[in-house]
Write a protein that binds this DNA or RNA. Structure first.
Lengths: 193, 193
DNA sequence: AACTTAGCGGAGGGGTGCCTCCGGTTGCAA
DNA sequence: TTGCAACCGGAGGCACCCCTCCGCTAAGTT
């Protein structure tokens, strides 16, 4: 688990007794599903039901909705962060694109969650730093190699991708086509398709 | 009002008596604000309160939440549709970009609404057709002039733009920068920034 | 001015979600 | 095995929202 920054300490909240741990994990898993399906307004009682525990158990582990958000969000970010290492052996442009594709999977389901946490949350700031630490070097590397336009920031790119992916595309190929347009805009020097 | 297609007939629901018309209009205006602020789940009772009418009046005019959505949505689309004519005198690329900028203003506030209506709604289909009728000729014109990549569809472009704009950008300049990246990806043949 | 009827508005029943509280249960250390 | 502290779960109070129903009001007509 080394290399995921100091985010891990936020998992120290995980309880100690075996049954309590089972419930904690079941709640986070249920919450992940529920938030993906119904958005951030998913009913907490529904989540408890889905996890097979009482509503009281949910509130004991996560006194507020926000803390449940955070628990779901943190390990998603950690997985994304770790994946950056897998792309290290690729050429600069390919590495960036590969990681951005991994980012797509993250952003597609976690955008609403991130938006909710964005307002003054220590956890969110740390997650943001974690993502930057993973992706920004790849971006810089690609820019220094002259294959990404120099006037774009890493933040620009994340927003570009996140926005596009937020949509539900009816036809599966279309999302990739739209992403390709966006990536062509990022590429430098411009190339003929 | 010519040129806005057959969408106008949906406004025939507007009631006849003077007081009823005032209330109808106040409700639509209140709903527009409320949806912009609180999203599609804004409370109907809050909307009625804001419009200064009873909840009963709201339900008489709009038996379901969806019909209120539609009323708000339709004239927004009509305004967007009409604006296409204003760009006719510009060169192909500039015209398209100008209209897409107008589209940005529309998409920023109406995306959630559109998503809600997207599922089997006759009104939504007509609005969609209206938008296509307004924008697709500009897109085709630009492609025929060789200034827009030929493999992109009009739908691709709308999704590209809508997605990006869905975000709240903290710094105002960033949105334009991100849009510029996307538009560069659309442009053809690619040009050096 | 008087009438008629479209239109008004809000009380109220039903439903759902949030969160607290506490009697019962069970993992685990000794 | 036993004891107890940690943990469980759901009943219940509160708040909010949805939607219906019906007695009242006033706009438009004659």
């Amino acid at each position: 688990m080394a290399g995921t920054g100091e985010l891990g300490e936020y998992l120290a909240r995980r309880p100690k007794r075996a049954d309590a741990q089972r419930n904690y994990d079941a709640l986070v898993a249920a919450a992940r599903e529920a938030f993906a399906e119904a958005g951030v307004n998913a009913s907490l009682e529904e989540i408890a039901r889905r996890a097979g525990v009482g509503i009281g158990t949910l509130y004991r582990n996560f006194p507020s909705r926000r803390e449940l958000f955070e628990a779901v969000y943190v390990d998603e970010v950690q997985a994304l962060s770790r994946s950056a290492a897998d792309m290290a052996h690729l050429p600069p442009w390919d590495a960036l694109v590969a990681w951005l594709n991994r980012f797509v999977a993250y952003a597609a389901t976690k955008r609403a969650l991130a938006e909710e946490l964005a307002h003054d949350s220590e956890v969110f700031r740390r997650c943001r730093a974690e993502i930057y630490a993973a992706g920004q070097p790849m971006m810089r590397r690609a820019q220094e190699a002259g294959v990404v336009r120099p006037d774009a920031t890493f933040d620009d790119v994340l927003r570009l991708i996140s926005g596009i992916v937020a949509f539900q595309f009816p036809e599966p190929g279309q999302r990739d086509r739209v992403l390709a347009i966006a990536l062509d805009g990022l590429r430098y020097p411009p190339t003929l398709a």
